[in-house]
Nucleic acid binder design. Structure first.
Lengths: 229, 229
DNA sequence: GAGTGGTCTAGACCACTTG
DNA sequence: AAGTGGTCTAGACCACTCT
């Protein structure tokens, strides 16, 4: 029986897999499928929309719905607060603030944050610990302008990472992952040797045109960012 | 005016940001909001569902809808076929098959694929080129059982990456990213020095309980995996 | 048991895009 | 100009889960 939108999605998926509907081909319209499956058009719409979000269908008004020629795989990454990430591994979390001062941003950071070169922002350096051992090294520039009330905590109790998530709700931004060789200082902080490969996460966040913070996070060897497809 | 579900979403988002609805607090029910906003309940439902998918709200029947205490940031990664990735950079794509033979899988791979140690699978080694220069090094084990008709191409024209996407439609799987030091062979293939940091992508895909393929993909320095938040 | 979100329906209008 | 997906509505029933 075809009773719900998930049944419709399953059947459509089956036809795609079975090549009943070939890659690149236009599939029947929503109304047609609704009649065939004996459900309301809205139900078909929900199913097709879901498959389109997953990258298997391409939908355009008037042009209709096509089976994607080269399905782009879409994976959803959950990016938790570091404390949660550590505790999810069953280890105790801790962090140490290594530096906290106003400082002129380097040019590379100024460009990425969209502020004038030489602007003074709050510079923070934090070491995140898992089970007492170094887990991640964080370097952050924070725009003090965006802090509500202008009161910036010292981040000894709550890390900047967690404090920002709780206090500067829902920002936009981008994130990039890469592999780099650890510099001498970075290696020392993480207990590695200079030149060891580190997993780098760089995140820039904005709130309504105003830059909030730029973070560079380093994880040592053994760190894996995982997700389901 | 509150005419569409995106308007409803925007207003709800505003209230979360403004702390009108505090983190952890239960917000009004769908029916209540529908009346307040002057829309149908389905419209409110669509808006709240979207925010829940984004990680900002937590919804449970009977319990109601709460503002997430520690919003988990969710990012969507698009994982295109390598050819598309290269061409999107405006470079010409090419690939060379370095090895293609049946081979007993190493233990580590057997475990991840869920096959008996020593099983013979198709082993493929491919170098992907961008503008004639090495872009990524791919090592893959492919389960020949899943190939329709049992006919496996030589992958000289179409890379295994692209062929699988087009011929083994929609599989489940997982993906993991990490940073490692290049081995001597890997470095040679990519034109690097042994020990240089490489960005590693490991992907395992399944189709209905049967393992399809395990891939290990290496990108040299300079490669960045990017997405919006 | 009862309250809340999850979903379905039938019909309608709208927006976009293509021919 | 017309066809297709996008969305809205009002009402209904269902499923889950908290008390």
């Amino acid at each position: 029986m075809m009773t719900g939108w998930e049944d419709v999605r399953a059947e459509v998926l089956r036809r795609i897999r079975a090549r009943d509907w070939a890659p690149g081909a236009v599939i029947p319209g929503e109304e047609t499928l609704a009649v065939e499956f004996g459900v309301a058009r809205a139900t078909v719409n929900r199913a097709l929309r879901d498959l389109a979000e997953a990258g298997l269908l391409e939908r355009r008004r008037k042009a209709g719905t096509r089976v994607a020629l080269l399905p782009v795989r879409r994976a959803t990454l959950d990016i938790p607060v570091i404390r949660q990430e550590v505790e999810a591994r069953g280890e105790s979390y801790g962090h140490r603030v290594l530096a906290r001062r106003m400082e002129a941003v380097p040019l590379a950071v100024a460009v990425r944050m969209g502020v004038a070169a030489g602007t003074a922002l709050l510079f923070l350096e934090t070491l995140h610990l898992a089970g007492g051992r170094p887990f991640a090294h964080e370097v952050r520039w924070l725009n003090p302008v965006v802090v509500p009330g202008g009161v910036i905590p010292d981040f000894d109790r709550v890390s900047a990472n967690e404090w920002l998530v709780q206090n500067i709700a829902y920002t936009t931004g981008d994130i990039a992952f890469s592999a780099e060789a650890a510099s001498g200082e970075e290696a020392a902080a993480l207990g590695l040797c200079a030149g060891d490969p580190v997993f780098v996460t760089e995140r820039m966040t904005w709130a309504a045109e105003a830059p909030i913070t730029f973070v560079r996070l380093l994880h040592g060897p053994g760190y894996r960012l995982r997700t389901m497809l």
